[in-house]
Design a protein around this nucleic acid. Structure first.
Lengths: 252, 252
DNA sequence: CGTGCAGTTGAGCAAATTCAACGCTTGTGG
DNA sequence: CCACAAGCGTTGAATTTGCTCAACTGCACG
């Protein structure tokens, strides 16, 4: 009964094998979530049909589904879990004074996220498109880490990777609009399974809020790059890199 | 003989208790350093008199002295050590295409630095003013960590703090010139021992390269803040916060 | 066949950079 | 002691960049 309720209202579902505590938390979280309607995230938050297939549990945790724009966690909440994208994609962000939004990272399949410097989330996380996410209890991981040095060091490695990502982001923000877009495209391409073809899951607004630009500037920069034959825009969400060298020269 | 050589040419010295391996490395490093003369860091790199007093070793390591603008480590070098500021201050940075420089962080007494995501330094580090720095061998720390879970978790904590710092930096870079300067001042004040009075160790160029602005914009913004009575500039390197509220409103 | 949303394009404007000059302090040498 | 060069910081004017506001296109959905 509880499960059917959150399926109708929450935009998130948990596979059957999740433990009771986790399910409880998920229900309390997502019952109130659809009504939140935060900035830029009001549309398309509809119930999502429960996937009958249980996806493989990659680590200690349960797999959850989030439909597009559903909140995974919110800024200020206690950071009790780690997350890993299975399918789909996720954005993490903060909302600044004046309603502006800073997206701090995009997470694609296999990426880990939710590792916060403190005990509570300094960012919010939302699914960009319908996504499956593995949820791991942080205390369980730390408990394992206490018994297994290797896991502790792996956690360390995750933190360091996240640090590298944040530094790369700062590097992007140092540059001109063209440099930022070029760097973003190169990064996305390096994470894309299809080499030079990028399938963007996120909107222009997301890109703009990640790069610290306006959607107009992002759009103009992309069309300018296309007119120079540096990239090709098959459609708005599908970009092919035609001249990586030119892009890297704009970036660094 | 080796020691006298590096004292004359290197701008760095190591206290007597440093182990032989460390001394060897330091000598090879700093013999060639004075001639490097990198961007923005050519002036005032003279020999520094050896301090006869051995400062307390706070962690597993040796204390070294660096005179103003001396290089502590360089981008691309293997990251074999962690560092902690004892006195003075340190900047870490990368040099971008076109000769621009991105300062990624300022480190004041007690701050740890040199924790890199990979096995080699992704940034360079330089003393801003004459400084004393504790140097700890990374492998020693990791070895300790392997035997002591607590140390492993502490290393994790350091990484997470560094992550928070990088995220805060990205947040700064998202804002207007005024917002960046305001955020910078608030951060420096929060790390200052004297409350509202900030004694800046770094030049306008350093600040500009940290905030992604030009020195002119930094200067203009500061004088503008002073004319609004938000801050007072006793002299160029000494700033007093007069209206923290106004600053925080500009920042977030 | 509208309606609504995402994306693009254009014109005018504000913000920050560039280029240039100037003041202040400091250290050097006559 | 003064003259003077060198750095650092500030100020001004012109230019460039990216933003704001607005219109318009294309596509998906009902």
């Amino acid at each position: 009964m509880i499960e059917s309720t959150h399926r109708e209202h929450g935009g998130a579902s948990v596979d059957e094998r999740g433990d009771a505590d986790l399910r409880q938390r998920i229900n309390t979280r997502f019952l109130g979530q659809a009504a939140a309607g935060r900035l830029h995230a009001v549309a398309n938050t509809r119930p999502y049909p429960l996937d009958p297939l249980a996806p493989p549990i990659e680590l200690v945790g349960a797999t959850m589904k989030f439909c597009a724009n559903a909140e995974i966690y919110g800024e200020g909440e206690p950071a009790e879990y780690f997350y890993q994208v299975v399918t789909g994609s996720v954005r993490t962000f903060r909302v600044l004074r004046g309603g502006r939004r800073q997206i701090s990272g995009f997470y694609l399949p296999d990426d880990l996220f939710g590792l916060e410097p403190g005990d509570e989330h300094s960012h919010s996380a939302e699914a960009i498109v319908d996504s499956r996410v593995v949820v791991m209890k942080r205390s369980t991981m730390l408990c394992l880490a206490a018994r297994n040095d290797n896991i502790a060091l792996q956690l360390c490695a995750v933190a360091r990777r996240e640090l590298a990502r944040a530094q790369a982001h700062a590097l992007l923000l140092f540059q001109s609009a063209q440099g930022r877009v070029a760097g973003f495209l190169l990064d996305m391409a390096s994470r894309s399974p299809q080499g030079d073809t990028i399938e963007l899951p996120m909107s222009r607004r997301d890109i703009a809020d990640f790069l610290g630009l306006t959607i107009e500037t992002v759009s103009r920069t992309l069309t300018s790059l296309e007119s120079e034959a540096t990239i090709a825009l098959s459609n708005a969400r599908r970009i092919v890199l035609r001249n990586r060298l030119a892009l890297s020269q704009m970036n660094a």
